[in-house]
């Protein structure tokens, strides 16, 4: 079990600007090659948000907030390849920081929670889309038959 006081000081071992830059770079590398419906201009905003959320997590260890972050990214349309490469970049930056021994496990907990939220949101969205598609076809057919 990680002591909050120790975790709180972790953010000082992490350069937020560097993290944001690396996340943005990762996102932009993938934006044309994966299922990323978000405009490339949004890439910088997303990387800032994810970076800020991670630093907040280091202070709070709030996994529910991390799951919400994942859900939000899914709802916005971030592709699965993007979320995986971003979370990998986050882990990498923590590993390369001056305190990898404690930052890396924190990154692991954060990434797990974010991905849980992301996958839950994607699944819920797909199920909702299935239902909506079925209803849309039924209503359209009914209108045609009238």
């Amino acid at each position: 079990m990680v002591v909050k006081g120790v975790v709180q000081s972790l953010s000082t071992h992490l350069n937020e600007v560097h993290l944001t830059t690396e996340l943005g770079r990762t996102l932009r590398q993938d934006f044309l090659s994966n299922s990323l419906p978000i405009s490339p201009r949004r890439a910088d905003q997303i990387s800032q948000e994810v970076s800020a959320a991670f630093l907040e997590f280091l202070g709070s260890e709030d996994e529910e907030a991390a799951r919400t972050c994942g859900q939000r990214l899914a709802a916005e349309g971030l592709g699965h390849r993007s979320i995986l490469t971003m979370t990998e970049t986050l882990r990498q930056v923590c590993w390369e920081s001056d305190n990898p021994v404690t930052l890396s496990p924190a990154a692991g907990r954060y990434v797990t929670a974010v991905l849980e939220g992301y996958m839950a949101s994607r699944e819920a969205s797909l199920l909702q889309e299935q239902t909506r598609t079925m209803h849309a076809f039924q209503r359209a057919q009914k209108r045609q038959d009238q």
């Binding site: 909506r132 209803h135 849309a136 076809f137 209503r139 359209a140 209108r143 045609q144």
Partner: peptide, 11 residues
């Protein structure tokens, strides 16, 4: 597309 229209109303 009538199906798109119905789906859109739902969204």
């Amino acid at each position: 597309d009538p199906v798109v229209v119905e789906y859109a109303h739902d969204i």
